[in-house]
Write a protein that binds this DNA or RNA. Structure first.
Lengths: 211, 211
DNA sequence: TAAAATAGCGTACACATGTACACCTAAATT
DNA sequence: AATTTAGGTGTACATGTGTACGCTATTTTA
């Protein structure tokens, strides 16, 4: 039995979260939201906010978690598409761009708080991105039989490139986004190719350490 | 003749700029500064602020310009070092890391406002970064005889990677920064190598379009 | 069924903010 | 020398903020 009370509480907690997410936009960052605004949007008295979060910071960290969740759903979705065949890089970029289009504000939250003024926020965002990176790293190691270090470097670089493109996509129109996607794909190919070549060289250096 | 008045005005204008820059830190962003705080730090009455800037936004854009200037000085410095010989990538990364170390707050300003809530700020920052990228692009085209498009893609990717590493460096200690620099160098090599390989392939496709 | 716990409300307060306005003083212009 | 211009000041006000405190109503617990 969940208790009618706990149920209600969870519901208004969600209202607060959704209210905050709903107020995010290209000209409104989380840090510019006030406790009162969020409470009002959620249909609550300002002081009721405290029944759910001790702080706006606590709400913010919850939002970052939420965003991380969305990011992981994204990965799952990309993997599913990849299994059906096609260029891994192309499908990944396309999937990511679709994500940006429909989850712009969540992505903005991550981008902004990653360089924000709260060390806790920065750490939380980096944690989520690092999950993302490590998953990609595993994939690369398995699919391309890459050395662990090289795979990590490639994954890290790829995520950086894709996130940066996502950031640019936020301010771009449809046509620009297509160009952006195309360029991003090229850049990811540079990285993949370079990683492969240099990994091979590393490999041969191992067997011929004197060369 | 400059006029003792114009001279004084320029001086207190600088005081405002320096006051703002001086208040920036890892836990204080430009957007979190208030007009009153900046005026106070500059030793001015709040209302005197308006004699120099109509807005905090106007001050902010001035700071971004200032930051862009610093960025260009950085490039010049890197070029000088490169002329004296050594690995281009290694020297560039090292120079950039030194820049971060002594100009952390200026770099933070760029990072933050790039994803900030003001379209004007975002545009201004992107303009500065794009200068940076185009300079690198020219260099790559000239030094490596690269195709214009490939050179741009490589320059863009490289700048993205380096800025991202810079962002990470801001929260890192000395040892982590060294590792970060090492990894960044590897990643830039991936990109350079990949760009070269794929540019060659593109070249051969031109002469043998049927293959 | 009585008592305790708790989500939500309204009031209230101290504080910081941007900026309008009138004023002063010294440099610049005439 | 007389007048205008303009950087700087202090006062004042409306507005928004976080949050302490006491209250109510309803669910939960004993």
């Amino acid at each position: 039995m969940v208790g009618i009370r706990a149920q209600q509480k969870e519901k208004t907690r969600r209202q607060l979260i959704d209210a905050a997410l709903g107020q995010l936009s290209s000209e409104r960052s989380f840090s510019s939201l006030s406790l009162r605004e969020v409470a009002k949007e959620a249909g609550l008295a300002p002081t009721s906010f405290y029944r759910h979060f001790s702080d706006m910071d606590e709400l913010g960290l919850t939002l970052v978690d939420e965003a991380g969740l969305t990011l992981r759903q994204l990965m799952r979705q990309a993997r599913q598409r990849i299994e059906k065949g096609g260029s891994v890089i192309q499908i990944s970029v396309q999937t990511f761009m679709e994500f940006i289009e429909s989850n712009g504000n969540i992505f903005r939250l991550l981008l902004r708080e990653r360089s924000g003024t709260s060390a806790a926020f920065r750490a939380a965002v980096n944690r989520e991105i690092s999950f993302f990176t490590l998953e990609l790293c595993d994939y690369l190691q398995q699919a391309n039989k890459l050395d662990a270090e090289v795979a990590y470097l490639q994954a890290n670089a790829a995520v950086t490139i894709v996130f940066s493109a996502g950031s640019d996509a936020l301010d771009a129109d449809k046509k620009e986004r297509e160009q952006l996607a195309y360029r991003t794909i090229q850049q990811l190919r540079f990285i993949a190719r370079g990683a492969m070549e240099l990994a091979l060289r590393k490999e041969s250096n191992k067997s011929l350490p004197s060369s």
